[in-house]
């Protein structure tokens, strides 16, 4: 099947299916209106991660002297690039979930006045952020190719597969939280707090060796029963970032354990998301 025939079939679906068309239009709305009336426009979606990368590079790379294992096939040892491969996917996961969570409450007016499949709002929010994420990844891939050689380009199809799995994961959690936040507005604040902890639990600014060392220290003090390393490795965000890092920093395939973790967590998140969403979506309007 050629790409053009896929495109034709896709556009035929969009032409015929109102829900697909709705999601496409809502996504377009989010994408086109996101940076309207800003002078730099879409450039903002690149400035933000760049600023964060610069900050972390100075603090952890320069001040704390964080060392990293050289990239397996790329031989890269640049800490800034290491952070970049973590911070950009992390940005997608955290803002994706946060925005997905607000998809229903932010569109309360619309939900109260028109009937349409409610999941379209969450799906389109995640899709529009996926689009932003893809532009950032494109930029990152180009930088990695310049720094580490063109071999990274071979992994682009695999990166896309990981992005799809990642989007499914974000969508699933977003669907659960979007309903939950309708009933309990506190969830948004709890989530903001949790995200801060989650950030450090996902190994974005340091390698797993740091955690390993930490686990050893607490074991020496008799707290070896705390599964610090186990929890860290079970964290899907860490595994997603490991996958991106394997592909973009090390220029290798992610490990089977990583694949297993991300696929299972994406499917579980989506499963719970659909379950919760379907159970509550009909009642949410009166709670908004």
């Amino acid at each position: 099947m050629t790409i053009s025939s896929v495109r034709e079939r896709l556009s035929a679906r969009v032409l015929r299916n109102p829900t697909v068309n709705l999601i496409a239009n809502l996504t377009m709305r989010d994408v086109t209106s996101q940076y309207k009336r800003t002078m730099l426009g879409r450039v903002w979606s690149l400035i933000n991660p760049l600023a964060t990368i610069a900050t972390f590079s100075v603090i952890f790379g320069l001040f704390f002297g964080q060392r990293i294992v050289p990239g397996a096939n790329s031989g890269l040892t640049n800490y800034a690039l290491f952070v970049a491969c973590g911070i950009i996917p992390w940005g997608f996961i955290s803002t994706g979930i946060l925005t997905g969570m607000g998809a229903l409450t932010d569109n309360a007016g619309l939900l109260a006045k028109v009937y349409f499949p409610r999941h379209a709002l969450v799906v389109s929010t995640v899709l529009s952020l996926t689009w932003t994420f893809l532009t950032e990844l494109t930029m990152l891939t180009i930088i990695m190719a310049i720094a580490g050689g063109p071999r990274v380009l071979l992994y682009i199809p695999v990166v896309l597969v990981v992005v799809v799995i990642n989007a499914v994961f974000v969508l699933g959690i977003g669907m659960v939280l979007s309903v939950l936040v309708v009933y309990f507005r506190d969830v948004r604040h709890i989530w903001a707090l949790f995200t801060q902890i989650w950030f450090y639990a996902s190994g974005i600014v340091f390698t797993i060796d740091v955690v390993r060392a930490g686990a050893k220290t607490i074991a020496e003090h008799g707290y070896g029963w705390i599964p610090l390393l186990g929890v860290f490795e079970a964290n899907p965000a860490y595994q997603f970032i490991s996958a991106y890092r394997a592909l973009l920093f090390d220029f290798t395939f992610p490990s089977p354990g990583t694949w297993l973790n991300i696929i299972v967590s994406a499917l579980v998140a989506l499963g719970i998301g659909i379950l919760v969403f379907n159970k509550y979506q009909a009642q949410i309007v009166e709670e908004l």
Binding site: V14, L15, R16, N17, P18, N21, L22, A24, N25, L26, M28, R29, T32, L110, V114, F116
Partner: peptide
Amino acid sequence: ENVFLNSAILGMTRA
């Protein structure tokens, strides 16, 4: 853009 968006919300297909 709003015509397309609003029509989609109201359940019209692209065609």
